[in-house]
Nucleic acid binder design. Structure first.
Lengths: 340, 340
DNA sequence: AAACAAATTGTTCTCGTGCACAAAACGATT
DNA sequence: AATCGTTTTGTGCACGAGAACAATTTGTTT
């Protein structure tokens, strides 16, 4: 196989046909005689033709619109990081005729569904969505499918949908990682607790997965470690933990409100805390030693990948993986700088 | 600011001049009358012109050659991973007229310097180099500089060179991370040892840095932890550690031969091992629990970034950072899959 | 075999930039 | 005012793919 980069012209010459015919064969459109098809295909098999994407996209410029449905990020550092990644991809793909349309929703189910409906009315060419509310919006997803609008989910998985790609983490594995790290931090005399802070816990399968992974790890190790799971609708309710604290060796927070729990611990507490996400408050507490370990969910990468995949799909019909799992980065105070 | 993507043509119309004049002003080449310059610049300030890189690179195609000087990777898993990253970038930039030329060297100083000389004779447009040998090759770097051939270093830093970019890790911080993790794994009764396996230890500043970072962490914490550093020219010599083992709580291996030390530990040993790199043998031992933690040096990313930076520099004269530090990924058995 | 329709093949233009070259404008000199 | 040289400005082409359109060949019918 020669290294050279062949062009449509080269192929046409080699096959003794015109450029138009080669083009028709490659994209198997239009009528071409069998003999011509054969001639071209023979050449194509011999050489390794890779179309020049630059030339192609120079021509393309269909101006595709990708809708971004994301929680209001003005006050939320996690989603803001995600938007940074989205913006990076936006800048990169604008050249290729991709433009983004943002639909920010306040964190209520109504607002979410409203924005989602808006998107459907606007008929974008693709949709990237953070579906933090589960039930109810299924019919909206179905509408996207009927209209054949490709969509990807980031951060929060939902089963039984025909999305293009889910981008996020393996949450069960994430719980297991937390468990393994917790095991090294605490000794088994006291119990460890898994704490969820989420209004709609029932529908948050990813939090269930984290808890399950956490317990699974200890179970498979035949550990005698005592584990208790607690669910709070609101961070304020964490104060009720107060009297339990003396019996607790470690806390695994399954959401990014990890810093909230650290606030309820006494100054000289020896309780180990493992949680999620490099939001500023968490990072501060990690540096102070109030939080021991954070698992980084790579929101920036999630946003970037989400837009990239959809864009390349629209531009080149590139296939996308059904699931893209990002690494489970373990962050301690000494390496936190690398991830900021 | 309108969102529209302006073209040279648009600017020409708005400024009432020809495309050629706009082009001359933008690249400030050639003679243009002051009035014309003013007219064009006024328009340029009003709109936000961003040249279409696609059209630009469609035209470019100067076929730049980037030389890759890298240790023989047929038998070395670490460098092979690095080459994977290089290949990914190669594929991506081939379209843009970048081609790579590989110069693999056997791991002796003579072979290294020979290949380096070959590169200089071949006069590539840029050089990406893994300089595992330090002294002696400085004159070769100077020759690159004289010929104004841009070059970047990956993995191994060398001071006082006018390289474009060094891509690798912050080795001191890397040692600190290892120390912090070691602290959680061992109790202070026994000592921990830092083990280097390297023929040319004197010249390996990055290994010194790792050791120094490791010690620095404990020192700053006013820890009473006893630390000892040992240097071996060859992995076989590790057997001499045997009688010391009962006094050792943890071992910090500064190179990828971490699996070698694990082989010398008794089956039921409680000695904790922290080391580097996700080569298959290390990963196997991590899964088996013979190694506790690996720090991932991201060789694939290093290779990819190295080629990308140089390519974009050649193509668009894009500026490159002087130093690009990759994250210090902490890998345990439960999250190792994410990084493979 | 002429006439026509249908199938196939070939040509040309577009995308936006960058460069080479052609055209025009300007100024100076006779 | 005509000529020349110089400066400035305008135009055309190439890059490679893709699609519309034009041209050709093929097949069918009378």
């Amino acid at each position: 196989m020669a290294k050279e980069n062949y062009t449509i012209r080269d192929i046409a010459e080699l096959a003794n046909v015109s450029r138009g015919t080669v083009d028709r064969v490659i994209h198997n459109r239009g009528k071409v005689s069998e003999t011509a098809v054969k001639k071209v295909k023979e050449v194509l098999e011999k050489i390794n033709y890779e179309p020049n994407l630059i030339a192609r996209s120079l021509k393309a410029h269909k101006n595709n619109v990708v809708a971004i449905i994301i929680p209001d990020y003005s006050e939320d550092n996690y989603w803001r990081q995600c938007v940074y990644g989205i913006r990076r991809a936006e800048k990169e793909f604008r050249q290729f005729g991709i433009s983004l349309q943002y639909y920010e929703y306040q964190k209520t189910r109504e607002a979410y569904e409203q924005k989602f409906s808006d998107v459907i009315v606007d008929e974008p060419d693709a949709v990237l969505i953070v579906p933090i509310y589960y039930s109810g919006s299924l019919s909206l997803f179905r509408q996207l499918e009927e209209r054949e609008i490709p969509y990807s989910l980031i951060n929060t998985p939902i089963e039984d949908l025909n999305y293009q790609t889910f981008i996020g983490q393996d949450y069960r594995k994430s719980g297991r990682v937390a468990a393994q790290l917790m095991e090294t931090l605490v000794d088994k005399e006291k119990k460890v607790v898994v704490v969820h802070v989420e209004q709609d816990f029932e529908n948050s399968t990813h939090l269930h997965e984290k808890e399950e992974g956490f317990k699974e790890y200890f179970r498979q190790k035949n550990s005698t470690q005592q584990i208790e799971a607690l669910t709070f609708k609101n961070a304020k309710d964490l104060s009720s933990l107060h009297q339990e604290l003396p019996n607790i060796a470690g806390i695994f927070m399954t959401t990014s409100q990890t810093y909230e729990i650290a606030d309820y611990l006494p100054q000289d507490s020896d309780i180990k805390v493992i949680g999620y996400d490099l939001i500023p408050k968490n990072v501060e507490y990690l540096r102070l030693g109030k939080i021991n370990i954070l698992i980084h969910q790579n929101p920036k990468q999630q946003g970037y990948d989400g837009v990239s995949y959809l864009s390349e799909h629209l531009l080149y019909k590139k296939e996308m993986p059904k699931v893209k799992l990002l690494p489970l980065d373990v962050v301690v105070s000494e390496n936190v700088d690398c991830y900021l």
